[in-house]
Computed example of a mutant assay.
Amino acid sequence: MILVVRWLLVGLFIVLSFPFLCVFMLVNPKKNRNLHVACRAYSVINRIFSVRVAVRGFNTIAEGKSYIYVANHQCNYDVMIVAEALKPGTVIVGKESLKWLPLVGQLYWLTGSLFIDRSNPRASIQSMRKVAKNVVANNTSLWIFPEGTRNNGGNMLPFKSGAFRLAKDMGVGIVPVTICSAVRDVAYNSLRATDVSIVAHPPIEADVVASMNSKDLASHTREIISNMIPIV
């Protein structure tokens, strides 16, 4: 019963808020700020599900500087945890199939988020090059889940190298981000609160990124993230 009521509240909130968000994002000249606005609005869903998110480290990240944020990806609810932490001027890079999901696809597009075709390596490379041009032109930061898909509660999957090649091509730093494993234990059908943390680690600055090859950089970043996964 609790779960049904919560999903009804979520559905009602989305139906009522979506048209207003769409209008705002269509007229807002700062398109790379739209995702932050949407995240602020939809972070209300965490309150509905009694999820308390501790956000750490993001206030130390330099303002007005482009980075690529890379985070572990455990379940669909990760996106709602990211909503509490995402900084203005950041957009998410997601798989192209998301654009066809009702509401989700439209919201992704309106927030200026970017799609890549992971099923076609050649198309994926071309997509990433377009991403790089967009970032450089608009002083935008990117949020990428480099595992490429959810790890479904197991150990982190190997990191795909695209995000790290992109950081080297763009000449920007990388911010490793850990989403704690408690996100898999959200008590959807209980009034019990769930405590979750999302932690931004000190950036791997552009000069260090430039000095490492993509494979080593991916491994180094993955190690930083995995060492902090148990934290709540």
Results as ranks from 00 to 15, higher is better:
residue 142 L to T: 13
residue 146 P to K: 13
residue 90 T to P: 09
residue 142 L to A: 09
residue 17 S to I: 12
residue 25 M to P: 08
residue 53 V to N: 08
residue 77 Y to L: 08
residue 162 G to K: 02
residue 179 I to Q: 06
residue 202 P to A: 12
residue 45 I to D: 05
residue 176 P to V: 05
residue 62 A to W: 05
residue 89 G to I: 11
residue 181 S to C: 13
residue 173 G to C: 10
residue 165 R to V: 12
residue 89 G to F: 04
residue 145 F to I: 00
residue 60 T to C: 03
residue 81 I to T: 01
residue 155 N to E: 15
residue 83 A to H: 02
residue 49 F to Y: 13
residue 12 L to H: 06
residue 87 K to H: 09
residue 107 L to Q: 05
residue 204 I to L: 08
residue 212 M to Y: 10
residue 103 L to S: 05
residue 127 S to Q: 05
residue 90 T to C: 10
residue 50 S to G: 03
residue 100 W to H: 07
residue 169 D to W: 14
residue 13 F to Y: 14
residue 1 M to A: 12
residue 4 V to W: 09
residue 30 K to C: 06
residue 41 A to H: 04
residue 232 V to D: 01
residue 28 N to A: 01
residue 68 I to V: 14
residue 51 V to C: 08
residue 189 N to E: 05
residue 103 L to K: 10
residue 57 G to V: 12
residue 78 D to M: 02
residue 209 V to L: 02
residue 116 I to V: 15
residue 162 G to S: 13
residue 208 V to C: 01
residue 15 V to M: 03
residue 135 V to D: 06
residue 30 K to L: 06
residue 229 I to Q: 02
residue 101 L to K: 09
residue 45 I to A: 06
residue 83 A to G: 03
residue 8 L to C: 10
residue 60 T to G: 05
residue 213 N to P: 09
residue 204 I to K: 00
residue 12 L to Q: 07
residue 26 L to M: 14
residue 54 A to V: 13
residue 121 P to F: 12
residue 110 L to C: 02
residue 80 M to S: 04
residue 160 K to E: 13
residue 130 K to T: 14
residue 73 H to W: 14
residue 30 K to G: 00
residue 16 L to Y: 11
residue 11 G to F: 13
residue 89 G to V: 03
residue 123 A to F: 12
residue 221 T to V: 10
residue 66 S to Q: 07
residue 122 R to P: 02
residue 206 A to T: 05
residue 102 P to S: 09
residue 216 D to W: 09
residue 169 D to E: 15
residue 104 V to W: 01
residue 216 D to P: 04
residue 22 C to F: 10
residue 177 V to H: 03
residue 62 A to T: 15
residue 232 V to T: 14
residue 95 K to N: 07
residue 1 M to P: 06
residue 90 T to R: 06
residue 5 V to H: 10
residue 143 W to Y: 10
residue 35 L to D: 05
residue 79 V to I: 15
residue 47 R to L: 11
residue 213 N to E: 14
residue 117 D to N: 15
residue 113 S to C: 15
residue 200 A to G: 00
residue 48 I to R: 01
residue 30 K to I: 09
residue 152 N to I: 08
residue 2 I to P: 08
residue 39 C to N: 01
residue 52 R to G: 08
residue 193 A to G: 03
residue 173 G to E: 04
residue 88 P to G: 06
residue 50 S to R: 11
residue 9 L to V: 11
residue 92 I to Q: 03
residue 24 F to W: 11
residue 66 S to P: 12
residue 178 T to G: 03
residue 195 D to C: 01
residue 85 A to T: 07
residue 131 V to F: 07
residue 57 G to K: 11
residue 174 I to Q: 06
residue 214 S to C: 13
residue 77 Y to G: 02
residue 128 M to T: 13
residue 203 P to E: 01
residue 204 I to A: 03
residue 212 M to W: 11
residue 126 Q to A: 15
residue 22 C to E: 09
residue 221 T to L: 00
residue 59 N to I: 06
residue 20 F to D: 07
residue 133 K to V: 12
residue 4 V to L: 11
residue 138 N to R: 08
residue 187 A to Y: 14
residue 117 D to G: 04
residue 170 M to N: 04
residue 160 K to A: 10
residue 64 G to I: 14
residue 218 A to Y: 01
residue 155 N to K: 14
residue 165 R to H: 15
residue 76 N to E: 05
residue 195 D to W: 07
residue 129 R to K: 03
residue 200 A to Y: 12
residue 59 N to A: 13
residue 50 S to M: 09
residue 104 V to S: 03
